[in-house]
């Protein structure tokens, strides 16, 4: 088992190293997220109640679409020089490739979120009654779920000719539970008028909603699925 995680670690190392050299993925994702957040801030007046209601949507649109940019590249880079074949012929369980890549993608997206969240909070004036720890947890779980599925589907779609198109088409329907759950939870945490009031503050209140459980189950399931299926996804 330790050997397994060491292999995962080396794949992760490779991803981080390559990204560090170009900084292409993170840069483009971050710029995209910034743009979405800024453009929406022009479109919606931050002082109005309506804006409060659409905030969770804006936040997750920015992050998820940015994530798709990165996920698309995740297995595309392996097409150059056919390097995926090199990984596949290495003497290791192939799901290590998945976990290494998923971990890298998660780090990239989290980095983008860390960079743009302060901008978001400042631009939309939600600092006063912010429940930061809970929000961070929801961001983490939601991003994790999305990246898990995204990495999986990225591998699946990378072999097809129109993979840039195929990935979002496959990803959003499959990740719908994560998207819905994340947006709902964020709505509660940002105290959007639509969802506020009904939920008690603190962890217990959050737990009383089904959404956190949906996220956990989903994250758990997609942590397990690649163990079983990834071999077949990559089969050439």
């Amino acid at each position: 088992m330790r050997a397994y995680w060491r292999q995962v670690g080396w794949i992760l190392w490779k991803e981080l190293r390559a990204e560090w050299r170009t900084r292409q993925t993170v840069t483009s994702m971050a710029i995209f997220a910034f743009l979405v957040i800024v453009v929406f801030s022009f479109a919606f007046d931050p002082t109005r109640d309506v804006t409060r209601q659409v905030l969770p949507g804006i936040l997750w649109i920015a992050y998820l679409f940015a994530a798709v940019l990165g996920l698309n590249r995740s297995f595309m880079v392996e097409r150059f020089n056919d390097s995926l074949l090199g990984l596949l012929s290495a003497p290791m369980d192939r799901s290590t490739i998945y976990f290494g890549k998923a971990a890298a993608n998660l780090l990239f997206v989290l980095l983008v979120e860390a960079l743009s969240l302060p901008v978001f909070l400042a631009l939309y004036d939600v600092l006063p009654d912010l429940r930061l720890e809970e929000l961070l947890l929801v961001l983490l779980l939601g991003t994790l779920g999305f990246v898990e599925v995204g990495t999986f589907l990225s591998a699946l779609s990378a072999n097809s000719r129109s993979s840039e198109l195929l990935l979002p088409l496959l990803l959003f329907p499959v990740a719908l539970p994560v998207v819905i759950a994340s947006v709902q939870l964020t709505a509660v945490l940002l105290a959007a008028p639509a969802a506020a009031g009904a939920v008690a503050p603190g962890w217990a209140g959050l737990w009383s909603l089904p959404w956190l459980k949906v996220l956990l189950v989903y994250d758990g399931v997609f942590l397990l699925l690649p163990f079983l299926l990834f071999d077949y996804v990559l089969e050439v």
Binding site: R6, Q7, W10, I11, W13, K14, R17, A18, E19, R21, T22, V77, F80, N81, D82, S83, L85, G86, L87, S89, A90, P91, M92
Partner: peptide, 29 residues
């Protein structure tokens, strides 16, 4: 699979890694 290797016209190398890093990665794996 440790006992065999494939040399193809596609090089299996990562363009964004240095020559050394490429070898290092495969050596580790």
């Amino acid at each position: 699979r440790r006992r065999l290797a494939l040399l193809s016209h596609n090089t299996f190398l990562y363009g964004d890694l240095s020559a050394r890093e490429n070898l290092y990665l495969y050596g580790r794996l």
